[in-house]
Design a protein around this nucleic acid. Structure first.
Lengths: 223, 223
DNA sequence: ACTAAAATACCAACAAGTTTACATTTAAGA
DNA sequence: TCTTAAATGTAAACTTGTTGGTATTTTAGT
């Protein structure tokens, strides 16, 4: 049941839950209670008060929002292992999207109060969460700044350095997917890639991009 | 000593410290120790390990970064009451900018360990910090998404609704400052403002923008 | 080896913002 | 009231990225 990603939902972030070390994750999960939803059941609606952190154990959850005209504006799917609800739990904010079960779905809900208590008892958990949130914030602010200051070709150079390592010489991704990730058109991406090719920094392949000069790529977007 | 803002530093954020309720702020501050710097003294350098949260009590601190060619790339000033260093403390990240004292300056440093301990003892403090970070993250992600999806005139409409309230009918800001805030050119801002004017939503004045139709403005960027 | 679907390449017309440049308006202060 | 610096308005040329369309390449599956 791989998600048909009609249109990416904004506000993508890596869940702190997934970033927890194994043992902490188990402890946190065991503080919650699982609940089953049948196919198409409403998990929550936009505007609902968030009750806790939700971890998907089986099935999938479809997130969406409806715009003025009544059509679905944005959606994404989350799958087993994914978690959501950090804004609701830590920020005390209402749900930002409608959520609906896709297929028979089991979701474990860790109530905000239970999470609070765990954090009282486990300084390590607190540290992890705080560190993760902070780094996400840093990342988001950096992305925002790049979006404002850097031309597309530089942003792509940066994204490519982030997706590869100094010796790993190729990134396995389609141009289509990369373009969507960076919220630009495929054509625009192509043009930018050409600049990088002309500069001798990369080469394009089928479903992959070869990095010829990692150092050069880094220098390219810094310059 | 009002800052000469040569060029805004990226990564602007509201400090969680300033957002704390008065009594918590006093407690946190008293956990630190003040240190004086003479004019021009180096407070820290980019790459240094962050030691804690810094609160400026007197004077000012100039933040900057040096680019390849050796010229100063970006800078901003922080003043008494401002605090910085949350990324260093919570994210365990190195300093991102060079910092230099401007005039005789007193900075109170709350060590990371002391902050940790306070958070152990005061659930309220923890909650505040967590909530603030989470909301900043939400805000940053929203801004990023807007930057990617919304045209300039819509972003401006949104910014104006954020800067005014439903009845408050005017925003006191120069177009120059607003343009810098939104990282666009003044000309570009002017064009976008004209669209809003033609739509009958706002009017321009000297050093201010008059909101004629708050609801309409909101509908404008949502549509 | 052949075919079809997926992915890539490329072109032209267009839209959105930037830069540079200059004219005009506004308000603060002598 | 007059002067002047700051702020605003606007125009033309340019850059960057988008949209829509078409052609070519690549690979998986028969």
């Amino acid at each position: 049941m791989r998600p048909v990603r009609d249109k990416p939902i904004p506000l993508q972030l890596q869940s702190f839950f997934g970033a927890l070390p194994e043992e902490l994750r188990t402890i946190v999960a065991s503080a919650g209670r699982a609940r089953d939803y049948s196919d198409g059941a409403i998990v929550h609606r936009r505007g609902d008060k968030g009750l806790g952190l939700s971890v998907i154990e089986q099935g999938a959850v479809r997130f969406s929002r409806v715009d003025q005209e009544g059509s679905v504006a944005a959606l994404t799917y989350l799958q087993p292992g994914d978690a959501y609800g950090e804004f609701a739990v830590f920020g005390d904010m209402p749900r930002a999207y409608d959520a609906e079960a896709v297929g028979p779905t089991r979701i474990r809900l860790i109530p905000a109060t239970a999470l609070e208590q765990l954090m009282d008892e486990m300084p390590d958990l607190r540290r992890h969460i705080l560190q993760h949130l902070t780094r996400q914030l840093f990342r988001a602010l950096t992305l925002l700044d790049d979006q404002r200051q850097l031309s597309l070709d530089k942003r792509i150079a940066k994204a490519l350095t982030a997706r590869s390592n100094a010796d790993g010489d190729s990134v396995a991704i389609t141009q289509e997917a990369l373009a969507e990730d960076m919220a630009v058109s495929r054509v625009g991406l192509g043009k930018a890639l050409n600049k990088l090719i002309e500069a001798g920094l990369i080469k394009t392949g089928y479903r992959r991009l070869m990095i010829c000069d990692y150092q050069g790529l880094e220098a390219y977007w810094r310059g």
